[in-house]
Design a protein around this nucleic acid. Structure first.
Lengths: 228, 228
DNA sequence: AAATAAACGGAATGAATATCTCCACATAAC
DNA sequence: GTTATGTGGAGATATTCATTCCGTTTATTT
């Protein structure tokens, strides 16, 4: 209503009370942990509990769940877009491409929330959507360069890589609690599938032993079951 | 209670009334369609509507959702286990392995319900579980044979193939409405990644044009969003 | 053409599960 | 000590399903 009020919103809102600021941080930290582990379907009640505050406190600081998610993953998505640019500056195009995939997947496999924000579009916020739109074209430039240089076979296409990321990161999320680095194995195999020619396969990380691999399959199952 | 009653259950239950039998078939058909398209989360109300009957009718014929799903996918899972055996009888071990993967994926990519029954364990019924337990060992024999014959690199492992199936079929489900055969492309690429040596990549199906590939990414998103 | 047992439809029930609001009470700031 | 701010968490509200119930309809039998 008042001019003063407008100024507060637009310019220099009165700083939060000390305890409120402290709580805001606790909430963001907790939300980061909870969404990373459980994905965006996690309840704000869970977040509040993890932060050691009441739900009401969460809602006073963030208008709703979507806003919180926006505040939380804004950086993350942006960073991925950024990585693609940085990869483009690396001198070897193949190494650049692989480096980008590894960096992006490292983040998305360890963070289910981030993956869901990037790969699925639940809770698409404007700023997030904006950052996301930069990823595919940047990836495209990486791929094309690696093809021109004769590293990547010509019959693959930018979208293929987006799909590799979807496939691998969704697996990564499912197995991250049991074998957090397993996704690298499947990235390696897929990369071996898209290089122009190879005499020998590249070296895979050693397989986790059978007990763990069994657990991997089972953990994928269990995660799906949690939906109900 | 009565002997007569027990006999009805165990031996030759009085046949259903003609209309009831007709409806039972309509329900099974509809359920097959609905679960194939929408997955096991589809409501029995949806199934009933698709069958053109009331929910009550569904429940008179099938004790509950799980029973219906069991009746519906029993064959499907069994058939996949069967395919693995048949593949083992093919003379060329590589062709056998590829043939099995293609056959199994063909079924699972076109049928989201079947995929969920095999890959996830929601609604695990006893008989289904039983059939499922046969798949991995059978697959294992296929893989080992192809490795002995020098087709498949030695550093991959049976579980890897189970994971390939998970990755590809989940993608296949997501894209089946837009590009129903696209999964073959990624199977090809992964296979190129796990052969012992290759000079040239194998031939990929032509990529759907950009418009469709864009739609593919978007459809993956949209499907995820439906969860909320 | 009754009479009867079987089957039907679909509104209603009840159990989860979520998001978001409200307000009596607490506490930082001055 | 006063006051503007902030807090907790019970509950209002909504949604979504599986499953049940019962008044009505229909096939079958006689």
């Amino acid at each position: 209503m008042s001019t003063q009020h407008i100024n507060q919103l637009d310019h220099c809102p009165r700083p939060l009370r000390a305890d409120a600021e402290r709580n805001r941080t606790k909430i963001l930290d907790a939300a980061a942990r909870v969404f990373a582990e459980r994905g965006l379907d996690a309840t704000l009640d869970e977040v509040a509990a993890a932060a050691g505050v009441g739900v009401g406190t969460v809602y006073r600081r963030f208008a709703d769940k979507e806003t919180l998610i926006g505040a939380l993953f804004d950086n993350g998505v942006d960073e991925i877009a950024e990585l693609a640019s940085r990869a483009h500056e690396m001198s070897n195009s193949w190494e650049g491409l692989v480096w980008f995939l590894e960096q992006a997947l490292e983040r998305q496999c360890a963070n289910r929330g981030l993956r869901e924000v990037v790969a699925e579009s639940s809770y698409a916020e404007v700023r997030l959507d904006d950052a996301k739109r930069r990823i595919v074209p940047a990836l495209g430039r990486l791929v094309e360069r690696a093809q021109c240089d004769g590293y990547v076979r010509d019959d693959v296409v930018t979208t293929d890589f987006a799909i590799f990321e979807m496939m691998i990161s969704s697996l990564g999320n499912k197995t991250s609690s049991v074998a957090p680095e397993l996704w690298r194995r499947y990235l390696r195999i897929i990369l071996d599938g898209i290089v122009v020619a190879r005499q020998r396969p590249s070296v895979l990380d050693t397989v986790p032993d059978d007990a763990i691999m069994g657990e991997v399959l089972r953990s994928a199952h269990r995660l799906a079951r949690r939906a109900h």
